[in-house]
Design a protein around this nucleic acid. Structure first.
Lengths: 183, 183
DNA sequence: TGTACATCAGTGAACGCGCGTTCACTGATGTAC
DNA sequence: TGTACATCAGTGAACGCGCGTTCACTGATGTAC
């Protein structure tokens, strides 16, 4: 399967086009942000005709939604990994959240509003986002906080991530801020 | 004609085309978000040829930047108004920030990353954004906080605003959240 | 076992689309003498 | 005071652009008998 990943066509059929398109789109996202993603270019990179993607995604937004969905799952994994140790407190989750955004700014933007016009039209995306939030709520609960505390923590951490990747905080090193805010 | 109500053409010259274009663009922003703003449509709405805007804006991004700049100034005013009373604490500023975002979601998005590709290329925009942040830092300082506290407060409030307008917080009324978080 | 046939996953041509921007231009205005 | 002239703010035609998407199609594959 992975051998297929470098657009190895065994003839007419691709073998794993859906995954190849997602990979291509993820590259384009990294290279030029959400607006740089193009169905035609993704097809080109996968070595396939411009209309082949329509066998796997009903429309361009469906591709973007799938990409964002993956993003939420990855973020969820990152949060889980950061809090897997017994001794890990909420600060580890916060740090992981901000680091995820700094490491994948374009993907983070795609997940939060840039690109997918309306989340409710993509149930999988909704579900993945909700699950991330619920994981976070769980972590806060384990530290004795209620839902309001979870929203507060999420806002805190999300705001910092967003302001940092948009370069809105003047004269501060991200690393120094993370160290100071999540000791 | 509708265009005539906002643009008084006394003949060849418009009189106040720059302002008219900004108004048209602000309307389009409200109607369809940052991506819906088009130079040609703005010209159309101002009752002017497609190329006339180039007398006032070097390129499309300059228009967007001007719009975002106005946004930061308006946000600054809103924050100042909310804290004008002696007794007003930091919570009033936070509340005003979130309310601004809820009342002008598209403009808020434009200000924070959606639309203008790189802020440093627009000094006026940079300056306006910086000034807003400094106003906020000043408010925090008056309440005994340092710069780190200001960044923390800004993150908190910005994150809540962003999550709310992107409809990421499930099952919560914005009003109830504001009341709970900014008592 | 071979084969007919349904279904799936591609192809390739074509369409409409409005956009941003350049260019050479012209009409209107303000000012120096 | 009138006038020449520079400058400013519009016009209108044109260009290139690649995009998303539809359509009728064909090649490949899996399966029932």
């Amino acid at each position: 399967m992975l051998a297929m990943s470098t657009s190895k066509r065994d003839g007419y059929h691709h073998g794993d086009l859906r995954a190849a398109l997602l990979r291509a789109a993820a590259d384009m996202l990294r290279e030029g942000g959400p607006a740089a993603i193009t169905l035609r270019e993704a097809a080109r990179r996968a070595g396939v005709s411009p209309t082949a993607p329509y066998r796997h995604f009903a429309e361009k937004e469906a591709l973007l939604a799938a990409l964002a969905t993956d993003g939420f799952r990855d973020l969820g994994k990152a949060l889980a990994a950061a809090t897997s140790e017994k001794s890990a407190g909420l600060n580890r989750a916060g740090e992981a959240y901000v680091r995820f955004a700094l490491a994948n700014p374009a993907r983070f933007r795609l997940m939060f509003g840039h690109g997918v016009s309306s989340m409710p039209e993509h149930p999988e995306l909704m579900a993945a986002a909700l699950q991330t939030f619920e994981a976070l709520t769980g972590m806060v609960a384990r530290n004795g906080g209620d839902k309001l505390a979870a929203i507060k923590a999420w806002s805190q951490v999300h705001g910092l991530a967003d302001l940092l990747i948009e370069r809105m905080i003047p004269g501060e090193e991200p690393e120094a801020l993370i160290a100071a805010l999540f000791p």
